[in-house]
Write a protein that binds this DNA or RNA. Sequence first.
DNA 1: TTTTTTATAACGGTTTACCGTGATAAGAAA
DNA 2: TTTCTTATCACGGTAAACCGTTATAAAAAA
Lengths: 219, 219
Amino acid sequence: MEKIKVHIADDHQLLIDGIIAVLSSEKNIEVVGQSLNGEDVINWFNKNTADILILDINMPKIDGVGVLQFFLDKKLEQKVIVLSSYDDTKLIKEVLKIGSSGFLAKNSAAENIVEAINTVYNGEQYFSKNIQNKLNATFTKNRVKNKEESNKNAFFSTLTPREIEVLKLIAEQYNSKEISKLLHISINTVETHRKKLIAKLNVKNVVGLAIYAVKNNIV
Amino acid sequence: MEKIKVHIADDHQLLIDGIIAVLSSEKNIEVVGQSLNGEDVINWFNKNTADILILDINMPKIDGVGVLQFFLDKKLEQKVIVLSSYDDTKLIKEVLKIGSSGFLAKNSAAENIVEAINTVYNGEQYFSKNIQNKLNATFTKNRVKNKEESNKNAFFSTLTPREIEVLKLIAEQYNSKEISKLLHISINTVETHRKKLIAKLNVKNVVGLAIYAVKNNIV
DNA sequence: TTTTTTATAACGGTTTACCGTGATAAGAAA
DNA sequence: TTTCTTATCACGGTAAACCGTTATAAAAAA
């Protein structure tokens, strides 16, 4: 029997070891690699292959989203199941858009990871139950479209590099005046970026920005 | 042979199942219970006992710190090994102060959890290697003192229940006026709490508060 | 019993955040 | 080439955050 080759990427060694222990009782699944950060994932896949990548979103150096974007460019063939603590609908939509095949919340039971691996290996998409509920009908209908199209009429905006830069400084507790000095731009420009960030991320104020930044490992 | 009875508390079922899978190969360790939040932990220990509680700090309803404080009042006898994603020195000091016997970062390898359980069961304290380095000499000297003393000359301030309540609402993007209405108190009082939070947590502004709240799973 | 902590409240003042709107230049994409 | 995106800047106004300081009653701790 051909085994499903799995690579696990998470910044918590304990969780990796736990998943390996869980999968060790599955005869048709083989863990062939592991990484503690996004950089290692990319390096590993440059030299090796796996059928399934179990990918944590919150990782140091390069986060899960960065890894997915790398794979998108390279047009590699492995399927990706995204692991996340935060069952954030916006995040789910984003990772699906950039090429993941499944989404598993960390509050799922261990048996679900086996189910997820088998489902995704068979070419289907997998979502944790609680996540399924969060995905609305509109989105479900649209996600069959191809990547080019779904990128065009995106359900949410992606942040520009400059916006991420400003967001990072906001999350480091700098105010607009300080940011304007750090980036050598006008305070008005900083405030414009701030406004766009609040609008794009659909948050109420700077607190929402800070929380987004933490949850997406920008700080 | 008498087995070491372990209870695991973490809001991620996947990690619980993973730890159980890891511990299943240990003959002298038996997992007798599990909880997904602090409330469940307290309920469980009201009816049952275990030798060791493996306790995640970041949990909903009542967090790890809340659980420890509960045990401190009840003077229960089980040892506690704290699990945390964030290897925050301040946090480590806090949980040791309120009665944990060990601290295990989630980026530790699985074998360490076995080591931690055995060490703590034998009455010693256990720390992940990377955490050992973070604990400075001053603190190491002081932690042999008894609880009363170490509470007195605390290294940082603890938030009051009301402050945590306000902080939670701040992190949910409510402004002071809204919070004052939600809690039926004056806006001036809310602002006073806000000021005290900023001072106690040693942050610059509301962004710092929000980040603290996320990292400590208050929101 | 005395002291400390907690939760409450007020106030004047300054700074910052946020809103709406409009505009321009450079570069990328269609 | 034309359109879209990105990054830039301005301005006037309102709301909110932040600062410093003071104060009081109740509860908890020493």
